[in-house]
Computed example of a mutant assay.
Amino acid sequence: MEKLSIVKIGGNIIEDENLLNKFLTLFAHLKGKKILIHGGGKRATTISKKLGIEPSMLNGRRITDAATLEVITMVYGGLINKNIVAKLQALQTNAIGLTGADANTIISEKRPKQEVDFGYVGDVKKVDQLAINKLMQANFTPVFCAITHDNCGQLLNTNADTVTAQIAISLSKIYETSIYYCFELNGVLENINDTNSVIKTINNSTYNKLLSENKIVDGMIPKLENCINAINKGVQKVYLGNTDILTKNNTNFTTISL
């Protein structure tokens, strides 16, 4: 099987021009087929406030009303996505910017109302790996933002880590697929106050042990849930760490595998 690298970048990298440029240079030099996924929550929050729309968050997740969805569509699908695509073109990577609505690549359903109504938030139901593969076979590098659609005309805000995992699971039917979650930390930390306390390897059993010991908390829980789900559904390996995980020189990061 041909290898495929699927890379997701976090908001702190997007907000730091130097970090973003460094990351995109590393991404551009990755060999073989590759896909980039990004969110942009911090930028969306900043622009929302400038427009007089106060962001509403619950447990780190954004409640997306109609006005917030407009901002997210402008920021994720427009400002951030096209800025990244332009920078990659300058690095001789023929990128194409996408939402899940483009080529009907990612269909979601609106999250049902339960204790909390998250609004226009989507849970991924289907990824069209054949459509995405056609783009890669035509030598395009897909750059997905965290927006999907319900196939009935409605765009939906969707967690970028989940989008990454679902794209990877789908394409693992065609490629030997690995995920790289790039963010500001060196990896999954045993002690959040010690940036060098990286947990080097995690599998199903060690993940459950870390959960029971409360060593994985807050936003790292849904991120690792996506990682474990991906590994259990065909993804070869998942790597978490700073942008240097895209190089062969870095050994201080977290690897998740069966």
Rank of each mutant, 00 (worst) to 15 (best):
G241P: 11
G40M: 06
N151V: 03
N204R: 14
K3L: 05
A86P: 00
I96R: 01
N193K: 15
S108A: 15
S197W: 09
C182N: 03
M74R: 07
F23H: 01
E2T: 13
G187N: 08
I9R: 01
Y207L: 08
L135S: 09
N151P: 00
N21E: 15
A67H: 13
K200M: 03
L91W: 04
K125H: 06
D102K: 05
N139Q: 14
R62A: 07
E184G: 00
V127G: 04
A95G: 11
E176I: 02
G100L: 10
P112V: 07
Y175T: 06
K42H: 14
N242H: 12
A165T: 08
E54D: 12
N21T: 12
A165H: 07
A131Y: 00
K42N: 15
L211R: 15
T243D: 12
K31F: 10
K209R: 14
L26H: 03
I84Q: 05
T177S: 14
D194M: 04
R62P: 11
I199D: 06
G11H: 10
K49S: 13
N226E: 13
G241T: 10
R61M: 13
D102E: 09
T247Y: 07
G153R: 11
Y207M: 06
T105C: 13
N214Y: 09
I174P: 08
E176T: 12
K33Y: 13
I84A: 02
E17A: 14
Q89K: 12
A95D: 07
M74K: 04
K31W: 02
I167K: 01
L240T: 05
T64V: 04
I72F: 02
P142S: 12
E190P: 00
N232K: 15
G100T: 05
E54K: 14
E2R: 15
E190W: 01
H149I: 02
R111Y: 08
D16R: 07
G78W: 04
T158Y: 03
N204F: 08
Y175P: 05
N21I: 04
L246E: 08
Y207N: 10
I47R: 02
N191E: 14
N252Y: 00
N204T: 04
L30R: 12
I245A: 07
K82G: 09
K134F: 09
I107H: 11
T158L: 05
G11T: 12
I202R: 05
G11V: 11
T73Y: 10
K215M: 13
I231S: 06
K215S: 09
Y76K: 02
A95N: 09
E115I: 12
T93K: 02
V188E: 08
V7Q: 05
E184S: 15
M57G: 00
G187I: 03
K113P: 00
V85G: 00
I96G: 06
V127Y: 05
G97W: 01
K113N: 04
T141R: 01
I35P: 08
A28T: 04
K233W: 00
